[in-house]
């Protein structure tokens, strides 16, 4: 994965661990942890292929735009690779 990644903006029904407030947002991979069984299948008792789990760091400006309380503060969240795509070059 590239360092800058965007979280998919899709809104499926069901058990999903990518929080809605981060969907469509772009951040930087803080560290890649290891693959874990895909919770979106595990939750329904289906065979769960391991999916790589990344910690993605977003600035408050990345997430909240001009409404950020302090633009340089950060939010780190664990996002499965199936939700991430490479972001276009930094603006």
């Amino acid at each position: 994965m590239s360092a800058r990644v965007t979280v998919s903006a899709r809104m499926p029904i069901g058990h999903v661990r990518a929080p809605a407030y981060l969907r469509g947002k772009t951040g930087t991979i803080e560290r890649s942890i290891r693959p874990f069984p895909d919770p979106e299948r595990l939750a329904y008792g289906q065979p769960a292929t391991p999916v790589m789990l990344h910690r993605v760091r977003f600035t408050m400006a990345d997430v909240w735009g001009p409404a950020a309380e302090n633009p340089d503060d950060t939010i780190d969240a664990e996002i499965y690779e199936t939700w991430l795509s490479e972001a276009p070059d930094a603006p």
Partner: peptide, 26 residues
């Protein structure tokens, strides 16, 4: 920072707040 203030925590100027959202396995 507003939440921290309600807990009585005021940080020095220039200190970054890093929030960690436990969204998955960690």
């Amino acid at each position: 920072r507003a939440v921290l203030a309600e807990f009585g925590v005021t940080l020095p100027d220039g200190m970054t707040v890093r929030v960690h959202d436990s969204t998955a396995d960690m």
